[in-house]
């Protein structure tokens, strides 16, 4: 047990939350990240789905890593990922139909989410299943974390509410504020603001950890 959660393995879990974050540092998986962050609920569901798919795809590919011929590995990886994504999609359609409608094509686009291919290529192909599993969970969580931060910021400023799974819409900005002349910032709901929010998160992160800064 202690070996399974050794320091090295725990690092796999925690690094992607900070200095090795898939979105802000490795620049993987930006594609689907931004379109689902208008409300908090789809962002949480998306983060969870990606975490599950990444973790299990990592385990499967890592278990098969010595038998996959390297020439056709991309197709093998895509098939494994696509099968997992179909499972997630069917489960969402069965148990969370509204959210699955909101996510529309973006569940399917998990297949081409660069986090998956990136982690499979960079980690699972060279490591044992257990560390790969932790790496998958860590990267999925790092991705989900950024998604949740962006979604929470956009929903509070854009609609004044927070939508949590199971709880429905919670009002964060009290209605009395609106009577005094407060207005929602409609710009935050529009897609481009997601990009600018990520830009600001990167700014914040890189001004704290200076070694991440680029030279030009």
């Amino acid at each position: 047990m202690s070996e399974m959660f050794s320091k090295k393995n725990l690092k796999l879990l925690t690094n992607p939350l900070g200095d090795d974050n898939p979105i802000t540092v490795q620049v993987l998986g930006v594609c689907s990240a931004l379109a689902v962050t208008v409300k908090l609920e789809p962002a949480i569901v998306m983060g969870l789905s990606v975490t599950i798919v990444t973790a299990f795809a990592n385990v499967i590919i890592s278990a098969l890593r010595n038998t996959i011929p390297s020439r056709i590995r991309i197709i093998v990886q895509l098939v494994v990922i696509a099968a997992l994504v179909i499972l997630v999609d069917q489960i969402l359609k069965a148990y969370a139909y509204d959210v699955s409608k909101q996510l529309s094509v973006f569940v399917g686009l998990i297949i081409t989410n660069c986090i998956l291919m990136g982690r499979l290529e960079a980690f699972a192909l060279g490591n044992k299943p257990w560390p790969s599993f932790l790496d998958g969970i860590g990267n999925g969580a790092g991705y989900g974390m950024i998604l949740i931060i962006i979604a929470a910021l956009r929903e509070i400023t854009g609609s004044g509410t927070l939508t949590l799974p199971g709880l429905g819409e919670l009002r964060i900005i009290p209605l009395s504020f609106y009577d005094m002349g407060y207005a929602n910032n409609g710009l935050m709901i529009l897609p481009p603001m997601a990009l600018i929010t990520v830009g600001l998160i990167i700014w914040f992160q890189r001004s704290r950890s200076k070694h991440l800064q680029e030279s030009n």
Partner: peptide
């Protein structure tokens, strides 16, 4: 400096 590269590209795209 912290915005160089990736950060500013995101903001430009926005």
């Amino acid at each position: 400096a912290p915005l160089k590269g990736l950060g500013i590209t995101f903001i430009i795209t926005g």
